[in-house]
Design a protein around this nucleic acid. Sequence first.
DNA 1: TTGTAAGCGTTATCAA
DNA 2: TTGATAACGCTTACAA
Lengths: 333, 333
Amino acid sequence: MATIYEVSKLAGVSLATVSRVMNNNTPVKESTRRKVLDAMAQLDYRPNSIAQSLASNRSNSIGVLVSELHGPFYGAMLTGIEAEFRAAGKHVIITAGHSDLATEQDGIDFLQSRNCDALILHVEAVSDDYLLQLAAGDTPFVLLNRHIPAIADRCISLNNELGGYLATRHLLQQGHRQIAYIAGPMWKTDARDRYHGHQRALAEYQLTADPALFFEGDFRETGGSKGLESLLQSGKTFSALVCANDEMASGAITAARELGLNIPQQLSVMGYDNVNFAYYTYPKLSTIDYPISAMGQMAARWVLREVYQQESNEVQQLFEPVLISRDSVLAAT
Amino acid sequence: MATIYEVSKLAGVSLATVSRVMNNNTPVKESTRRKVLDAMAQLDYRPNSIAQSLASNRSNSIGVLVSELHGPFYGAMLTGIEAEFRAAGKHVIITAGHSDLATEQDGIDFLQSRNCDALILHVEAVSDDYLLQLAAGDTPFVLLNRHIPAIADRCISLNNELGGYLATRHLLQQGHRQIAYIAGPMWKTDARDRYHGHQRALAEYQLTADPALFFEGDFRETGGSKGLESLLQSGKTFSALVCANDEMASGAITAARELGLNIPQQLSVMGYDNVNFAYYTYPKLSTIDYPISAMGQMAARWVLREVYQQESNEVQQLFEPVLISRDSVLAAT
DNA sequence: TTGTAAGCGTTATCAA
DNA sequence: TTGATAACGCTTACAA
């Protein structure tokens, strides 16, 4: 592999000049530039990005920490992020935090030790304080799907409370009054926010959430199926169910069918996220749209703007959920 | 950020000694080691991985190129890869090839320019010749889901033909004789292999594939739905359908339902891949298990063994698909 | 067992 | 507009 030194020799100029034409940040005489470019082509020269990083203190790499690498939600998010950076010639180092405190902190350490220019974090276990402290350090970062007022300028988030409200209000508007709820893990902010929205909608109809109709799931299919079974066993009747995400809704629907319940005739079900497969469940899932891919893209743009000074991009930080009405909800009889 | 120099000063030893305790590759007196470790702790020293890479000519990073970042298939694959590397302290740079020739080549260039120690490639558009040439270069790489005899030692693949055979044979054994087929894009090897397996199974029953019962899809839900509609319009009757992957099967099932077809009573459906959601479709999808997460893990181990000399890990390169029988297939009447 | 010093391939500061 | 040359933070002969 040719080095800048060989290029400079072949072109008959100094190292510095070669560097200048590469980075074209300093004027170089056209004829000199040509000589250098020719030499580069002739040697099939590729700059060593490691050496560039060491000298310039810039790695052109962005660390991304997500809870999981699989699942429709994270997939869409990563796609949004990678596409934006790829186009900008930056690259992404991806690691998983598994919603676990130690693993998340570890992941952040790991990414920092790789000299990332910036971090995009989708963290759940780590505390606000920890992040505040991280913000005092000198690795810039954006938070995805989390809102911390003190560093609101680094947060890209969805109004989850509103989404929770919309889901339940939809059911109420369809005449349902006994509404069960399968939540995400309640230590997660988004799970709590969604549930608060649920409560607010109920309150508007002079209703309160019945603890017997509440189940805390895990945001995964099995959480939905177990949740439904448990709710049914409570003995309380309910005509509608809201699940805090689509995966649990899918699990709940499958479990309901196995128990001989007709969806939506005997039970209306709402999901949340509008992940790709929501259209392909049976019945098609009514849900709340979470524009996670766009939000990932915005996180990338934030970095491009704040860290790499690419002013061109508009960055939207606050997103609003939208109700998607499909076939899993029926008016109450 | 403290450097190795400051550590050496504080510990009262030379740079080299500090380096030695970090890499513990050379014996260091226990008391010296302690002094160094203390100094490191005191300064909260973190080695600069960029400088390490430049000096050692090792980046400790592995480039991963997959077709997409989303979708259940790639999600599982990335999870398998990342978990293995994370445990080994290596990190992954992930980029997407989108099954497009230029984008894939570009991605490979990109990863090489980042000085990856090795590459894991899930490429579809790039030619065998191109890969053979790449193999002649000096960046080691493994191929996932692709088999090229000349470099078989770098390939981790599933016997896709066998899977296709198993899927169709299952239907034949259930008494089906008119079997439609929705394929993946036929320029992709795996799509072709699966189809060949289908043909072989038919041949065993003295049948041949009917072109009117063939549709070339795109491995996505919409391919399945469009495929089913198109097959139905052909006027030919069929009692079973095999789809070359689960996503198309899901799309086909949804479309069938909309057209008033009962699954599996009026139409049996087979999928392929056994992605996570296959258990949550209605009816539960009978499919062919593709252990993609394990295969991703093996690709990672291959790298660990071949590139980082970690001999400990066994690497399995050839995988066999297995039939998963669930509810979407019924015996022919 | 430890220290010295020469790289690794760039960028960036100064002069010229 | 160009050239010397000192960083950047570490690894690794080679000596001691």
